[in-house]
């Protein structure tokens, strides 16, 4: 779900010096800095899970069972006696990987599709964007569910399926950018001097669209993570004994009234990550959006 709980398409602003804006925003808005820090810590901890995690993610201790947070297992253990902290760290690896790879897939398709539509313009553009409109109104996740159930719910499939859901908005944004950039002087000049279409795309269009693309990608990552969690909840995410934040939460939600910590910790971490990413993405978008810069 939440495929559209994202930026309104097409409102992303023109390209500006991205690094400068990020830097200025961060300095002016301590909340953004805080979000970035939280995100960084969680990210780093997940990446370093093999060294940080006190236990392995599959080490079962049935005698222990579900125990509340204590000094040995400071997030507690699940019903099979596995250390929740370790599982959350390892789960983070998968959730983040899914988020990032899914976003990359959507970027790849969306940017290519959008820039071709925008750069070509005219009839091509119309047909291509009609097609996107059409796909927008489809029950996308149903197809994803079908793919995952009927083929295999391997992680690879997950990446592809989620990326496939997300590329539409990216395509719209990129298309809008390309449309407005293609008449810019430097693009015209490049065309006159005989640069090929792909050359213009990679050397002129893409670098100048980077701002909106990065902003939207920042907002896509949480959407994909959320979707993976959604699929996990339906039993279609990563398969045990591996875990993602989604599977941890969905396992924990079932026994919430008995062992609340099992859902609390993973849900809190997931929420923190989603919140931070959304907050950062939002802030960047506002910073880049000339309509919202009053002063």
């Amino acid at each position: 779900m939440a495929s559209i709980l994202q930026t309104p398409a097409d409102v992303l602003p023109a390209a500006l010096s991205l690094r400068g804006i990020v830097y200025r925003r961060m300095r002016r808005d301590p909340w953004m800095l805080l979000c970035a820090t939280v995100l960084g810590i969680i990210l780093l901890a997940s990446l370093l899970a093999p060294w940080i995690a006190p236990y392995s993610y599959e080490q079962i201790d049935l005698k222990l069972g579900a125990s509340p947070p204590n000094s040995a297992h400071w997030m507690g253990t699940d019903t099979l006696g596995r250390d929740l902290f370790s599982r959350t760290l390892y789960g983070g690896q998968i959730s983040i990987a899914v988020g990032v790879v899914g976003t990359l897939v959507s970027l790849l398709i969306g940017v290519l599709y959008g820039s071709i539509a925008g750069y070509r313009g005219g009839h091509t553009d119309e047909v291509m964007m009609r097609f996107v409109d059409l796909l927008y109104s489809l029950p996308y996740l149903f197809l994803v569910i079908i793919l995952l159930v009927f083929f295999s719910s391997s992680i690879l499939m997950l990446f592809v399926a989620l990326g496939l859901v997300q590329w539409l908005t990216m395509a719209r944004i990129v298309r809008g950018q390309a449309l407005s950039l293609k008449n810019a002087e430097f693009v015209q000049a490049a065309r006159l001097s005989g640069t090929s279409g792909t050359g213009i795309l990679f050397r002129h269009l893409l670098p100048n669209m980077l701002g909106p693309i990065v902003v939207y990608a920042t907002l896509t990552v949480p959407a994909v993570i959320l979707q993976e969690a959604f699929l996990s909840f339906l039993g279609l995410g990563v398969q045990p004994p591996r875990s993602s934040w989604g599977t941890l939460i969905s396992d924990g939600a079932g026994v919430m009234s008995l062992f609340p910590w099992l859902v609390f910790f993973p849900a809190a971490i997931l929420a923190a990550v989603l919140f931070s990413l959304n907050f950062l993405g939002d802030g960047l978008r506002d910073a880049l959006d000339p309509r919202l810069r009053h002063d």
């Binding site: 779900m1 939440a2 709980l5 949480p222 959320l226 969690a229 959604f230 909840f233 989604g246 939460i249 969905s250 939600a253 919430m256 009234s257 609340p260 859902v263 849900a267 997931l270 929420a271 923190a272 989603l274 919140f275 959304n278 907050f279 939002d282």
Partner: peptide
């Protein structure tokens, strides 16, 4: 609003039930 977006429905649901 941001907090709302960041909590998945399948956490919210059980939470409400609880």
């Amino acid at each position: 609003v941001l907090a709302g977006i960041s909590v998945p429905t399948f956490v919210l649901g059980p939470l409400f039930i609880f």
